[in-house]
Design a protein around this nucleic acid. Structure first.
Lengths: 242, 242
DNA sequence: GAGTGGTCTAGACCACGCT
DNA sequence: GCGTGGTCTAGACCACTCA
């Protein structure tokens, strides 16, 4: 693969380096070529290499040591999410080494409750698109997720929504909306009526994720409430220290 | 405050801008001066301003919009951590609007179990420093945390450890160790014998955080097991979408 | 079209770790 | 002392948003 001037150069370099992680050209613990060497290899400036490295470092993929070098993080395999990746359940399941499947359970329009209206900055009673879906890992149900989106934002009110898509795709395709950031509240809960769907005994513990997705113009777009069976799927993440 | 050449300029600028968030010079929703304006104001290059902004954007403090401008995130107040700050319990409690106190319960040396030894990459039976501490929010117990560190790393085997310090300080002061990254596993649990310490009923649900702290040379340094009463303290975090 | 952030370059010097 | 990553500069052009 060579660098082509179309997508940003740093993105292309990023892709190439990630490939080298995958095919073990840069194996775990390996010391990467220095920034200057890589800048020569790719024919780009050192600053470009550094923006790529900055991104990889934030994700915990590489460790940089001043006066020494840059190393491939050996622990990254044990982890299934990172900064900015907590929202994508399908990705989470895949990264945990399972086969994902998304099963739409119920897609319908409902009226917003007081609480939901408050979070979404709309009036109570306004129509919401409610989407309940079950994520499975190796055919074993692990996450029950409900998403609420103001129905008025639908491009086509009569659209048949494909519940197998990832939330990002659904928002893009049926709402033409892009997300700028997400807030997540993580707490624990006891299984109630959701127990049988997740195929667990009532009164066992679950992880509860309450997310709010915000659009580019900083308005709440979607409210998500999810229950995760953490006997099967753990949230494991890396954090860079600084 | 003026920029002085001692600490990195970008850090100084970072500090100044955070001050302006606090004193509402840059209030929530406010549109910041452009990068060029700020670079003039501080007498630094635009690239320097951009490295500052990059950091603030990752933390979710600001939102950048190409062709438009940079805005102060209005939602940041609702949040108490971000994925890079999950390890600092004292900070977490403060950011949630409570008064923190750290109460050391038990500091002693123990022999590593098989499991612990495996995680810390040492042999079973090796002596560990075990530190059990209780974090309170407004005098209400919220987090019970245990940390295990190989005792051989202690600079002074007879040191009296001040259990009121933050883990980062303890590692620095008594072990002369710096952390490069942390992995965290988040799951839910039922309160057992820890219930009375956290002042809750047995069999109620808790958040369970299992952390491993790694040193600069990529070796596991500390194993932390913590229980968090999520009726009082929620984990609320921001994630930038990209 | 004017102004914004996004990308990129080609240099420079500094702080740090090794040997 | 040498090579590494860390910081910084002063430019340039592009992509995008908004009036």
């Amino acid at each position: 693969m060579r660098v082509i001037r179309s997508k940003p150069i740093s993105e292309q370099v990023n892709t190439i380096i990630r490939e080298r992680f995958r095919d073990a050209t840069y194996a775990p613990g390996f010391r990467l070529p220095s920034e200057s060497e890589l800048s020569k290899e790719f024919g780009v400036s050192r600053a470009t290499i550094r923006t790529v490295f900055a991104k990889l470092a934030v994700e915990g993929l590489i460790l940089r040591k001043q006066g020494d070098g840059t190393y491939v993080n050996e622990r990254i395999q044990e982890v299934n999410t990172h900064l900015g990746g907590l929202w994508d359940f399908a990705h989470l399941i895949e990264r945990s080494g399972f086969e994902v499947s998304i099963q739409p359970l119920l897609i319908k329009k409902v009226a917003a409750t007081e609480d939901e209206a408050h979070v979404l900055a709309i009036d109570a009673g306004i129509e919401l698109l409610s989407m309940t879906r079950l994520f499975s890992a190796n055919s074993q149900p692990v996450i029950l997720a409900k998403n609420l989106i103001p129905a008025s934002l639908l491009l086509d009110q009569n659209a048949e929504i494909d519940g197998h898509l990832r939330i990002r795709e659904i928002l893009k395709q049926y709402f033409r909306q892009e997300i700028s950031f997400v807030t997540t509240e993580i707490s624990s809960a006891l299984a109630g009526e959701n127990a049988h769907i997740l195929n667990i005994r009532p009164r066992t513990h679950l992880l509860n994720l309450k997310m709010i997705f915000y659009s580019k113009d900083n308005k709440p777009l979607t409210l998500g409430k999810s229950y995760l069976n953490d006997d099967i799927l753990k949230l494991r993440l890396v954090q860079a220290w600084n």
